[in-house]
């Protein structure tokens, strides 16, 4: 009984220590985590590679709300939410942008796994969501038609 209790205390200790680690880590350290290879990749295949998401299953438990037609490609609102249990990470990818990976978010318990954000679309493109849950990857995508051509992305 005593051994068991000790074991529990140890586990709790580890958990608290991890919590404090997250708390004490300065935001500048987080900037160092920035997935440079993923964000600088120019193909969707490379983005998926640097997200370690090579094999992903299509999932209808991913909510992806996008406008069918965007009048202005420089501000395209999207809403993303995952109903997949234990969702840890959600990334959003704009297939036809010069650098397709737009953003990724990691969620801890207490935060709903989802977000709304405004994206730049260089031109008509599928918007792709990659979800990591319990070590597995899931995806969903929807196309957005952009009415204006090449309005952003620095003309690259």
């Amino acid at each position: 009984m005593r051994a068991r209790r000790r074991q529990f205390l140890n586990l709790a200790g580890t958990w608290i220590a991890t919590g404090f680690g997250a708390l004490l880590r300065p935001i500048s350290a987080l900037a160092a985590d920035w997935n440079k290879s993923g964000f600088e990749a120019r193909s969707v295949a490379d983005v998926l590679k640097y997200l370690n998401a090579g094999a992903s299953a299509n999932s209808n438990s991913i909510l992806l709300k996008v406008p069918e037609i965007a009048d202005d490609g420089s501000v395209v609102p999207v809403v993303i939410a995952s109903r997949i249990p234990n969702t840890q990470m959600i990334a959003v990818v704009v297939d036809n942008n010069t650098h397709p990976l737009a953003a990724s978010f990691v969620f801890s318990s207490g935060a709903d796994p989802g977000f709304s954000v405004q994206l730049k679309l260089r031109r008509t493109s599928p918007i792709r969501v990659v979800v990591q849950a319990s070590g597995k990857y899931f995806r969903a995508s929807k196309e957005v038609k952009v009415a204006t051509a090449d309005a952003c992305d620095g003309g690259k």
């Binding site: 708390l23 987080l30 985590d33 990976l101 978010f105 207490g110 935060a111 405004q118 994206l119 730049k120």
Partner: peptide
Amino acid sequence: RALVEGQLSASLSTNPKF
């Protein structure tokens, strides 16, 4: 306590809203 950690890029709009 950190609940959300995001990595962002210039593919987000100017003055982005989240």
